[in-house]
Design a protein around this nucleic acid. Structure first.
Lengths: 152, 152
DNA sequence: ATCCCTGCAAAAGATTTGCAAGGCG
DNA sequence: CGCCTTGCAAATCTTTTGCAGGGAT
């Protein structure tokens, strides 16, 4: 358990999305609402291009530039994070800003969220006890590379 | 301690570099020798551009395209890895292919290698005991974000 | 009404590709 | 010698920027 993709978010309702933007200090435009919804719904942490493909299927007039600008504003507002990935050429985004870890599937290139408070404690305790020379750690994220198994 | 940058690699001798390429099944050209040397010497995991700047200071005729092709060949041969980074626009490379972790300095944008067999065991044991649903882990890399402190 | 946001198009930045000439084994 | 690699330049892909018009508060 604990793979966040086990439970695909049920399409979040418009009110919730609007609140999320407003609380982050962003104007709730039609475009941003759709972009945020796509980000929350698309699996595997999408690129700007993938978000764009998703939103234009509903509203073809939204431009790719707007998607880039919206994603930038989400990151600046702390609503979204950029994902660290070694593969691929494009930036990928993560709508979840709480501390968590990532599973990298070498087959599908998906990046799957993994939350585990027990693991978090283990790591924090390790560094609290051991320390790092000349470095003040601030946050930890474990990258687990491997392959997704067919879920029955 | 154990921050690999504590001990800057003494300029590796040509014979060693040549052996490394040959063992990986690559032709030891003048360009590749210089590119590999730069990769091993430059701190913080350089981009292709940074490697290029370094090599042209010795041999101005080497082109950026050659640097890209050489780095690709190193990665394909398992001599080098691409680094997973959330910040910046360019790819960054790591000449060390053994399992290790990374410190990300939010001030300097440097990515510093961190080796710790004790940490490796801790993580492996954790997942051996706990397991992951629908995922077969293959390797682990901890990303530690924080700030480098002035070393006295 | 005021600013912020959008769409478009051009620009900038990063990486890849094709090809002729040269170098390595 | 034969094949792989290089240098160059053009092509491609990704992301950013400038600006005029439109929309949210």
């Amino acid at each position: 358990m604990a793979l966040s993709t086990d439970h695909f978010p049920p399409t979040p309702d418009a009110g919730h999305l609007r609140a999320r933007l407003t609380q982050a200090g962003l104007r709730a435009t039609r475009q941003r609402l759709m972009i945020l919804e796509s980000l929350l719904t698309l699996p595997g942490h999408p690129t700007a291009e993938q978000v764009h493909r998703q939103v234009i299927s509903q509203e073809p007039s939204i431009s790719l530039g707007t998607v880039y600008k919206a994603l930038d504003s989400f990151v600046a507002a702390g609503l979204t994070r950029r994902v660290a990935a070694a593969e691929g050429t494009s930036r990928r985004y993560d709508a979840d800003c709480t501390e968590h870890h990532h599973l990298f599937c070498t087959n599908t290139q998906e990046i799957i969220d993994y939350c585990d408070p027990q693991l978090d404690s283990l790591i924090r305790e390790f560094f609290a006890a051991k320390g790092l020379q000349n470095f003040q750690p601030h946050s930890f994220s474990l990258h687990i590379t491997g392959s997704k198994l067919a879920s029955k």
